[in-house]
Design a protein around this nucleic acid. Structure first.
Lengths: 119, 119
DNA sequence: TGGCCTTACGTATGACGTAAGGATG
DNA sequence: CATCCTTACGTCATACGTAAGGCCA
């Protein structure tokens, strides 16, 4: 079982229709999607949908599966986001130095502004 | 990105060693595992490990990724368990009927014991 | 130089698209 | 009979194993 199966399953569960899910959401051929659903059900050992002439409907097992599948897919996506955030280089800082007190007779002194980069 | 990538990554992160993870936990060839890790890093766009002569070590991005990856894999597994539980047929009941009052002169009456099946 | 990771390459598993078939209202 | 799902099949992507190469103590 792979994330692809979960993504496919979720799309079909939400559309209630294999054909529509294939075309509108997954941009794949419908028979291929049907095949993946069947593979998933075989691996689990339970039917996730009841097939009718108007589309598909979730079984009890399908509803139970859906809740966890959504979390799994969301966490996988979160993992990527979190890794990308963590990999960002430390905030760059833009520094500007300047001299004050020029031409006043008193000794010049050094000033500095630092601007942190907004992410 | 598929669950396989997450499972591979977790095994390597926990072993701290690609070779050991391949042989002891994933039962696959080590170069193949290396390749999958690289693919994962490319897709994420960040390094997850620092490679050294003694093995691999997680980067900050790797640690951030690991936490979510574990949840994702666990939920996928939970989804299967939950679906299988929900698909179980309703508890079977074993019923025994019997007649009482036989041979007492009074009319017989029907009794019944039911035993539910322990799961 | 020995352990560990990577690159290179041939093989094969399986995911996909197209076409045809069956079921249901 | 129109809609939707399934089966069948050829093609192609890619995951895997084997072999060779590079890197660092």
């Amino acid at each position: 079982m792979e994330l692809r199966h979960l993504r496919y399953f979720i799309a079909v569960a939400e559309e209630g229709n294999v054909t529509a899910a294939a075309e509108k959401r997954l941009h794949t051929a419908q028979p291929s999607l049907s095949r993946q659903l069947r593979d998933l059900e075989v691996e689990i050992g339970a039917s996730l949908f009841t097939r009718g002439a108007r589309g598909v409907e979730l079984t009890d097992a399908g509803r139970a599966f859906l809740a966890h599948a959504r979390v799994s897919v969301r966490e996988a996506s979160e993992a990527v986001q979190a890794a990308r955030r963590a990999a960002r280089p430390p905030k760059p800082v833009f520094s500007v130095g300047f001299l004050t007190g020029q031409g006043t007779g008193s000794p010049a002194s050094l000033g500095c502004y630092e601007a942190s980069c907004r992410r």
